[in-house]
Design a protein around this nucleic acid. Sequence first.
DNA 1: GAGTACAGCGCGGACTACTT
DNA 2: AAGTAGTCCGCGCTGTACTC
Length: 344
Amino acid sequence: ATRCTGGLYCKAQRKQTLLHFAGRRAMDIEGLGDKSVEQLVDEGLVSSPADLYALKFDDIVDLEGFAELSSNKLLSAIEDSKQPSLARFIYALGIPDVGEETAKVLARSLGSLERVQQALPQVLTYLPDVGLEVAHEIHSFFEDAHNQQVIEELLKHGLQIQDQGELGAEFSASTTLGGFLDKLHIPSVGPGGAQKLADKFGSLEAVMNADWLDMRQALPEKQANSVREFFAVEENRQRSLTAEAQLADFGMHWQSEKKVVEGLPLAGQTWVLTGSLELMSRDIAKDKLESLGAKVAGSVSAKTHCVVAGPGAGSKLTKANELGLKVLDEEAFVVFLSKHGITV
DNA sequence: GAGTACAGCGCGGACTACTT
DNA sequence: AAGTAGTCCGCGCTGTACTC
């Protein structure tokens, strides 16, 4: 994507950042819409999200449209936003390519802001739907000095991020030594070769320091050569060790098998909501489904398990019918939920 | 046979249009 | 004007044909 390179100095970008930060799905600061952000930035009162938390009554009461009432309202809305969930907070930061879903994944899997901030690209790619590209965006966002400063100030102003905790299961479950070696992208060595190395040596150090004979026992000549050459490069050794150290630091230990069968009834299923739902909001419906282990997607495909269609459903319902997918109307959906012990 | 390169697909994210 | 459904694009993943 191309974006304005004005960075810190670009007013328009700062406004966008603030609007996103305050948005209903992010920090949910009511009363901070287009108009107010416009003024706050133009008057030089606010230039980063952190500045919001330093605003005083006297600063804003003279602004256009801000008499006593709305000033107090805004201040208390800001105050009320001080305990965001980790997922919301990450989303609010507006990291490129990180929307609500990816923010949730980061929060769930890494469990704490520190870990998200420190995570190396190689480590981030362990998360579902995070590839190298997105991993680098995340990593460089937190490496940026200005971004670091803003986060630091936010915390200093009393922001308390909730649900800091342990590493999530999906992260720990997906880390194996074989998988890790595969991610190093040693030329000529794919998943198969990586697994053989893992089986034979059992640790990264052992692979790095293996002598030729042992190496040849694990792999054919060409691949064995490639591995040696790879680890002969100092930079590769460092990168591998750092990534491994971080995984260990995050409390990770190599596991032999990756598969976790989740106990949730809809684990692994993808659902789609379309049309207007009248008995509950879309967000609630989505939450309910997610709590049963389902993934709620935005578009219908052959991989969709079920479509919930309210009145006014359009192309998605058509497609679902074309594909012969299971479709529930809202009433049937509510019945379905109650069968799983969820009341609306 | 194993690794790689490539293509197609599904989903998330961002944008647009429509409704109220 | 705000909120929501629909559309479009790009990233990551998977499956397949190709190569060594």
